[in-house]
């Protein structure tokens, strides 16, 4: 958890003096904390394949140290694997990610490692059935073994459809209570939506890499990028289309852009008299309408750089550019 306090230092620093890049001075010491042993961490693949390649970085981001990769795991709780499929839907980008930036050290669906190892980033998919002791042990172990825990998708973050669960079904009718992981462990980042888009998972993976292995400048960018997702994690474990009413319209912030309509995965939102109308009988409580809303969070320091960040991510993925 050294990293987290480091992150917080950066953020509190930023709040004090928004224009000045304060961060780089502080972090030096904590960054080296808990870098897992890459050799042990990569057992799914034969040693011949472990090639740390020079990555094709990066227009703006000057000399990137030829760092080792970060380690990522996918921890499957009570979810549907759709979030993992979304990650895999980066197609050739998935290989760019795994070749250059991240070793997938744990993922029951894709690799043979059976126990949750130490890792830099745990992507947790699914909510936790508290009536199943294996699930509870797994989520605790994930927290213990990971530097950064990401609630990947709506079930982990907010419960999503498992919020409706009430047990009563054979062969385990006692499986009736499902909790978002944030009710049981500290969660560093939320990535809501059902499922989070392939691009958003890619962006978080790249930013996690920059945060852990990048230059000071890159660390600062990555920290700024990830901050709103940390804030979402701090905001709480409940989400619903009603958030648009409660936290946007009621707060006098809605300007009727319609983003929520496009984001909703079950077409539960339409615009009525310039404001979103939520069909609450359709809403599955995934939280994406609020997260995607430009008036939930809007960080000028990051989004003003949309052009440069977009180019940097494209370059990192080995596409676009000239």
């Amino acid at each position: 958890m050294g990293l987290l306090s480091y992150l917080k230092e950066i953020f509190t620093g930023k709040q004090d003096a928004p224009e000045a890049p304060v961060a780089p001075a502080a972090p030096a010491a904590p960054t080296k904390v808990e870098v897992p042993q890459p050799a042990e961490a990569k057992p799914a693949q034969t040693p011949a394949d472990v090639k740390v390649e020079q990555k094709p970085e990066e227009t703006k981001m000057e000399e990137l140290p030829v760092a080792d990769k970060i380690t990522i795991g996918h921890v499957h709780m009570s979810g549907c694997t759709g979030c993992l499929v979304s990650l895999a839907d980066n197609y050739e980008g998935l290989f760019a990610l795994l070749d250059n930036y991240a070793d997938l050290v744990y993922c029951l669906t894709l690799a043979d490692v059976r126990d949750i190892p130490k890792m830099d980033v745990a992507l947790v998919e699914g909510s936790v059935c508290i009536n199943d002791h294996h699930s509870v042990e797994d989520i605790k172990k994930a927290r213990e073994n990971a530097t950064i825990v990401v609630a990947l998708g709506a079930c982990a973050a907010y419960g999503n459809v498992t919020r409706f669960a009430r047990g009563g079904q054979w062969n385990q009718p006692q499986h009736e209570s499902y909790l978002p992981i944030g009710d049981l462990i500290d969660v560093d980042l939320y990535l809501p939506a059902c499922p989070p888009s392939k691009e958003s998972i890619r962006n978080v993976a790249v930013m996690a890499y920059l945060l852990l292995k990048g230059t000071d400048e890159q660390k600062e960018l990555a920290a700024a990028y990830l901050k709103p997702l940390m804030d979402l994690a701090a905001r709480g474990v409940e989400a619903c289309g009603c958030d648009l009413m409660v936290d946007v319209i009621n707060q006098g912030l809605c300007m009727g852009c319609g983003t929520c309509v496009a984001a909703c995965p079950v077409r539960a939102i339409d615009m009525v008299y310039g404001k979103p109308n939520i069909d609450r009988e359709m809403c599955i409580k995934c939280g994406v309408c609020y997260a995607q809303c430009p008036r939930s969070f809007f960080n000028f320091d990051v989004i003003n750089q949309f052009e440069a960040i977009g180019e940097a991510i494209d370059a990192a993925m080995g596409k676009g550019g000239e």
Partner: peptide
């Protein structure tokens, strides 16, 4: 504001699969 929403959707495209590019 709509262009802001668009850029946020490109950088944080949680519910915007295959829109950003």
């Amino acid at each position: 504001c709509q262009i802001q929403a668009l850029r946020k959707a490109q950088l944080y495209p949680m519910g915007m699969r295959s829109v950003p590019d």
